[in-house]
Amino acid sequence: GETRFPVYDLVSTWYHEGVPGHHLQLAQWAHVADQLSRYQTTVGMVSANAEGWALYAERLMDELGFLANAEQRLGYLDAQMMRATRVVIDIGMHLQLRIPDDSPFRPGEQWTPELAQEFFGMHSGRPADFVESELVRYLGMPGQAIGYKLGERAWLTGREAARKAHGDEFDPKQWHMAALSQGSLGLDDLVSELSAL
Rank of each mutant, 00 (worst) to 15 (best):
P100A: 14
T85M: 09
Q35C: 03
F170T: 11
Y76C: 01
M93Q: 08
L190C: 02
D129S: 13
P172W: 06
Q174E: 15
V7M: 14
S124V: 07
Q174G: 03
R38A: 15
L95T: 09
Y76Q: 02
T112G: 09
A79Q: 13
L74W: 11
A57C: 04
S124T: 15
F120A: 11
T157L: 12
Q72L: 04
T157M: 08
T13H: 11
T3G: 15
R86M: 14
V87W: 05
R98L: 12
D62I: 04
W111D: 00
D189F: 03
G52K: 01
D90M: 10
R59P: 00
R73V: 13
V32G: 08
F66R: 12
G186N: 13
A162R: 08
T85R: 03
G92D: 04
I99M: 05
S12G: 03
I146L: 14
L194R: 07
D90N: 12
A70H: 10
E2G: 15
D62G: 01
E2V: 11
V7C: 08
A165M: 04
L55A: 07
Y56G: 05
L115Y: 05
S195E: 12
G18D: 03
E58W: 02
N49S: 13
P113H: 09
S124D: 04
L194N: 09
E63F: 01
V11P: 02
G1S: 14
M177I: 11
R86N: 10
R137N: 09
N69C: 08
G143H: 00
T3E: 10
H22S: 03
H23F: 14
Y56C: 06
N69A: 03
K164N: 05
P142S: 08
P142E: 05
E114C: 10
F105W: 09
S37N: 04
M61L: 04
H94A: 08
L115H: 11
G21T: 00
L190I: 05
D129T: 13
L115P: 01
L115Q: 07
L197D: 06
R38I: 15
M177A: 07
I146F: 12
R106K: 09
G92I: 05
A178I: 03
A30Q: 13
A161Q: 13
H94M: 13
E193S: 14
L139K: 07
S37V: 14
